[in-house]
Amino acid sequence: MAQASLVFITGGVRSGKSSFAERKAIEIAKETGKQLIYLATGVPSDSEMIERIQKHQLDRRSGEYSWKTMEQSIRIGELAPQLHNQDIILLDCVTTLLNNELFSSECKWDGLFLDAVKEKIISGIMSINNRAGTLIVVSNELLFEPVSESNLVLMYSRILGQIHQYLVNEADQAFLVEAGIPIVMKGMSR
């Protein structure tokens, strides 16, 4: 396959990582003429969030390339059978997915539960990657401040870090977006 199969993109809040991910997806669509799919993970919790989601949807619909939106807030791997092998998938973002998995369950946050959540997210992403032409995964940089003494935050940070390490290792390309500028961390710049 000529196009990159897995692309990993992170950045801080409002770093422009999502815009970059969308541009990247569109670029691949231009080259291949394949379907763009936006994999929405957000569960709107208030009216501000609903507005934000609607704005994003409008942006994606009004562009030159039309996106198909699929919604899946947990058990992301269940979408895999619906995908076609040339689709260009944008998954935004891993931290939302992680939050959804953690807070949708009544389970106690112990090592066993957290490892299961981590495995579920990684295997879900990889099964989507196996079905799709290109999967672009967006996540947040959250690990650069003192890890709180709260055990919950520590456990959360650990599995997020482990998921990121796994994805960077699997990725054909990885980018860190700083102030709107994508920095190539792995693979060739396109």
């Binding site: 940089e141 690990l143 650069f144 890890v147 940070s157 650990r158 997020l160 870090g161 482990q162 990121h164 390490q165």
Partner: peptide, 9 residues
């Protein structure tokens, strides 16, 4: 000297 964020390997 080796630095980087927490849980970055």
């Amino acid at each position: 000297f080796v630095t980087g964020g927490a849980f970055n390997g």
